[in-house]
Write a protein that binds this DNA or RNA. Structure first.
Length: 953
RNA sequence: GGGCCGCUAGCUCAACUGGCAGAGCGCCGUGCUGAUAACGCGGAGGUAGGUGGUUCGAGUCCACCGCGGCCCA
């Protein structure tokens, strides 16, 4: 309009957020906005963030967006607060998951086939696989606007990184924390490898049938009397070396026919048939009794075995209260035997078959031997009774073989030695939500066991332990140089296995142990290993340890959250992170966990292409942190419709009118807030409170505490401020009121864009760049609250006004008086409102006079002729506006208007002509039908009225 | 078997320290509208998973039980 120069680009109200986002991804890349956001904060105090490296063994899913969104929001927030936030990307590249992916690719399975294929070649394939997946991860991360330095990522397989890890192991070695232990682990006899707890968790099956057998162990001193023991693994019976009882548990000796049987009193219902109690005793009375071995295979010639011992793990929850103990096939069993000095030896080999010395069952696979053993005991009248139990039992998640518990050698870090410190350092860490730290993590640490760090695999950091062939002297190496290799040498198997070292003690040959390192140790080393510390980056490491903030999903409790904590406590005496957000799981729309095997993983590209990254981020930020999230097309659609579009439309509304009026935020001095109309003062007061609320919440890592008030504010902005202010922008005259409206809405939108920038970086960027003409919202400062604008009294009054409106509209509805019909007066309950606010209520209710203080709402329903005509004039305006719109006229177009009407409607046209002309931008209002003007008949108050509009050029 | 979390309208979820049970979506009715894929008002829809307890008062605190999710065994 007029000669005004529009300073804003037009805004498409039919925006496609996915398209908008793609443009901005490209813009940021070209503009190097992220790099700039770091550059402008160089030298400022750091906010230290650590990237928990994703394992690059598969395509990223929508559930991976969740923790990455939380990581991103704080990087952006603290950058806007003036801190330097380095964001070094990282990739977890080693480990069984990567190997399995490659095994699938190569269509091979198991260690034997890998070795036939060739370890060198196999590891090359692993590396290639990782790079392939990292490309997809990077693409997803950039599309979701997770700003990180991807070009300088750390990779756990790099030689520098491996040597940092070696250094860490050497530190632990020197502290005497590394040892070779003989422990019971879940073991797959087909794959011939122990499994990690992580793998174990994937393979439990409910309702697995197993034999449940009760076995007599005859006392040496009295062969008529047996101790009754229960087991679900008969194959461990040839390995029996002891029976365990609880010292304080009460036991019964009962007579059944010619035989006596001893069981826990609390388990007497395990007895079959009639019995007579002969004697009562306690576990401690039984301890030390010798019994007849079932089989002669399990005990070496020396040492005392096969007698009753007391143990703290015996319970009377199930079984007989007398626990059959086979040293090598149960964790409690082995610990007990080691404590009591009971000798033992294996009866089963690494393939899960009985060794030749177990003559009766030699060569049989243990599970196949179960029924034979039961039968053997039955024939020898040692079987008391037999049944089948259904319980939860672990299987190999790869090959589905039933796992067995099996004792073998593994390397350990004695974390239990630092348990107190682990617990206290964890307690000093700020967990969001808090129960993750005290509950899940705290309980886990309280039951800390030594960390099994060795894996009998191929693609991993090789354990730098060399052992002498002759004298068993061992040594830990901490760098490539130390073993005569260049720093950048490939340190992986099989190359490293070629390196032999002379034994300093006996001059013999030292060879590396074959195992590689648990890959969780790799990622836990990232605070220093990402710098190549201590050979490189010493100062950088010291400046960036510990992290202010990390975020991952809940499954990292025993994963990265623990490995970071354990390694940092051992090496540096404190935790590696001060604040941690633990996000929940992403569920599908039916509430099921998203997983590859269920096939319900939401493809991130589907989400990005249909709804956009901002939409999914906003869902994650507003849903309860730490809980499970249900995400699907409906939820995404809703967040777009409920939050993003209303905000976008406020923005589009502003730009539409600002362009028409040529409003330039820099063009005129700001109207002082105190002089602006009450709606503006109210909105600015709300904004001021919002800024403070969001800022305080984010400082406390309370994402919901910021996002939910933001959402509520946008709703108020859209459904109250803009709704009540439309006429201020629409009216023709440019006065102080209109200027105030423009200035207020502009300021609010710019501030909201800055507040939203960390959360929905695309939407905020699009708004901010157009509204300010500046380069990027992500280079701006986070808003600070305008203390002067805060007016709690006004907010209270406005809330009262809105309640009054609500009551008034309800009363009108009940009286069937439509809102377009003005009324003379209304009485509302409550205290009188100041005139300025009462005016808003009058407008909204369309009444001439308002009184407060009534008991309820009462309306003056007497409609005078004058009120009648006024009401009709609003119907007329409404009809003309609709016709203007249907005719495709622009909002600011002037028109000539013709009408053909009779009676009341005609009188309304005449008496309210000025009002109608002003509202509809009609320069003329003519009665009768015009030649050559296309028109339309409409119904107004039941009467046919012909309207014709013509644009004035 | 143990631990953590959840269970509030048909669906998704709120409600500072105990104080009259709410919103959004969906449904029905109605109104408003030259920003909106909208919005307003009204309506239907609730024994707050169950049972006890503490309290003047419990969705909220305690105990036990049930169901679901996750983690661990």
């Amino acid at each position: 309009m007029k000669e005004a120069r529009a300073v804003f680009e037009p805004v498409d109200p039919k925006v496609s957020f996915p398209a908008l986002e793609r443009e901005l991804v490209e813009f940021w890349k070209q503009d190097q906005t992220f790099e700039e956001s770091l550059r402008i904060r160089e030298g400022a105090p750091r906010f230290v963030f650590y990237e928990g490296p994703p394992t690059a063994n598969g395509k990223p899913g929508t559930h991976h967006i969740l923790p990455r969104a939380f990581k991103d929001v704080f990087g952006r927030y603290w950058t806007m607060k003036g801190r330097f936030v380095e964001r070094k990307a990282g990739w977890d590249t080693h480990g069984l998951p990567v190997e399995l992916e490659v095994e699938k690719e190569l269509k091979i399975s198991g260690k034997q086939q890998i070795e036939e294929y060739g370890v060198a070649e196999f590891n090359e394939r692993c590396k290639e696989s990782v790079h392939r997946y990292v490309r997809q991860w990077r693409e997803m991360s950039e599309r979701m606007a997770f700003w990180q330095d991807y070009d300088n990522a750390y990779w756990t397989y790099h030689s520098d990184y491996i040597q940092s890890v070696w250094w860490a192991l050497k530190q632990m070695w020197d502290q005497g924390l590394v040892y070779l232990g003989f422990r019971v682990a879940p073991y797959c006899p087909r794959c011939m490898t122990p499994l990690s707890s992580h793998e174990l968790a994937q393979g439990y099956k409910d309702d697995t049938p197993d034999p449940s057998v009760y076995v007599r162990f005859r006392l040496k001193s009295d062969p008529k009397t047996s101790l009754l023991a229960w087991t679900t693994t008969p194959w461990t019976l040839p390995g029996n070396v002891a029976l365990a009882v609880g010292a304080d548990i009460g036991y019964l000796k009962v007579r059944q026919g010619q035989e006596n049987v001893i069981v826990a009193e609390a388990r007497a219902d395990a007895l079959e048939g009639e019995y007579e109690v002969v004697e009562r005793m306690r576990g401690q009375d039984l301890a030390g009794l010798d019994y007849e071995p079932l089989y002669p295979y399990s005990v070496p010639s020396e040492g005392r075995a096969q007698y009753v011992v007391d143990a703290d793990f015996v319970s009377t929850e199930e079984g007989t209260g007398i626990v059959h103990t086979s040293a090598l096939y149960g964790a409690d069993d082995l610990r007990l035997c080691q404590e009591k000095g009971i000798p033992f030896r294996h009866t089963v080999d690494l393939r899960g078959r009985f060794i030749p010395e177990v003559e009766k069952f030699a060569g049989l696979f243990v599970k196949d031997a179960d029924p034979l053993i039961v039968e053997d005991l039955r024939e020898r009248r040692l079987l008391y009774k037999e049944a089948v139990v259904r319980h939860t039992y672990p299987f190999c998640w790869r090959c589905d073989t039933a796992l067995i518990y099996y004792a073998l050698n593994s390397w350990y870090v004695r974390t239990t030695d630092r348990k107190e410190k682990l617990v206290s350092q964890n307690a000093a860490t700020n967990w969001v939500p808090p129960y993750m730290g005290t509950g899940r993590m705290g309980d886990w640490l309280a039951n800390n066991v030594d960390w099994a760090i060795s894996r009998s695999r191929y693609w991993g950091t090789p354990l730098p332990f060399w052992v002498c062939e002759s004298c068993e002297e061992s040594r830990c190496v901490e760098s490539a140089e130390e073993i005569g290799l260049p720093r950048d040498a490939d340190l992986h198997r099989p190359h490293i296995d070629q390196v032999t070292l002379p034994c300093a003690k006996c001059g013999g040959t030292m060879r590396r142990i074959p195992e590689v390192l648990d890959c969780w140790f790799d990622s836990g080393a990232m605070p220093f290993a990402q710098r190549g510390y201590p050979q490189h980056g010493k100062q950088l490491f010291e400046e960036t340890f510990p992290a202010d903030f990390i975020a991952e999903a809940v499954d990292q409790t025993r994963g990265w959250f623990y490995s970071l904590l354990a390694e940092s406590v051992i090496l540096f005496g404190r935790n590696a992170y001060k604040n941690v957000i633990c996000t929940g799981h992403v569920l599908d729309e039916r509430g099921q966990k998203a997983s590859k095997s269920r096939g319900n993983v939401l493809d991130p590209n589907y989400v990005f292409d249909h709804f956009g990254s901002d939409a999914i981020r906003w869902i994650f930020f507003t849903a309860p942190v730490g809980e499970s999230y249900r995400v699907g097309p409906q939820a995404l659609q809703e967040v777009v419709r409920r939050f993003m579009l209303p905000l976008w439309n406020v923005y589009s509304f502003f730009v539409t009118y600002a362009r028409i009026d040529g409003f330039d935020p820099a063009g005129r001095a700001a109207v002082p807030v105190g002089q602006r109309p009450v709606l503006d003062r109210w909105l600015l007061s709300r904004l001021s409170g919002l800024v403070r609320t969001a800022d305080v919440a984010l400082e406390r890592y309370d994402v919901n505490g910021a996002s939910r008030p933001l959402e509520a504010f946008v709703e108020d902005l859209s459904t109250w401020y803009v709704r009540r202010s439309r006429r201020r922008f629409w009216k023709s005259e440019s006065d102080a009121d209109k200027t105030a409206a423009y200035q207020t809405l502009h300021e609010v939108l710019v501030t909201v864009a800055r507040l939203l920038a960390p959360f929905v970086p695309f939407l905020a960027e699009a708004m901010y760049r157009n509204l300010t003409g500046e380069r990027s919202v992500h280079l701006a400062d986070f808003p600070t609250a305008e203390v002067g604008a805060h007016d709690p009294g006004l907010e209270t009054q406005m809330a009262a006004a809105r309640r009054a409106v609500e009551a008034g509209l309800a009363a009108r509805d009940a009286a069937h008086l439509k809102v377009r019909q003005p009324l003379n007066a209304a009485v509302l309950p409550g205290d009188p409102l100041p005139e300025e606010i009462a005016g808003i209520v009058r407008d909204e209710l369309n009444v001439k006079q308002l009184k407060f203080g009534g008991a309820g709402v009462s309306l003056d329903t007497n409609i005078t002729e004058e009120l009648r005509l006024e009401g009709l004039s609003r119907d007329i305006v409404r009809a003309i506006q609709q016709l203007r719109k249907d005719s495709g006229f622009n909002i600011e177009d002037r028109i000539q208007t013709w009408y053909d009407a009779d009676g009341q409607v005609a009188r309304a046209f005449a008496s309210q002509a000025d009002y109608i002309k002003a509202e509809t931008l009609s320069v003329e209002l003519n009665r009768g039908r015009a030649e050559g003007v296309s028109g339309k008949s409409v119904k107004i108050d039941g009467e046919e009225v012909w309207l014709g509009l013509k644009q004035v050029t």
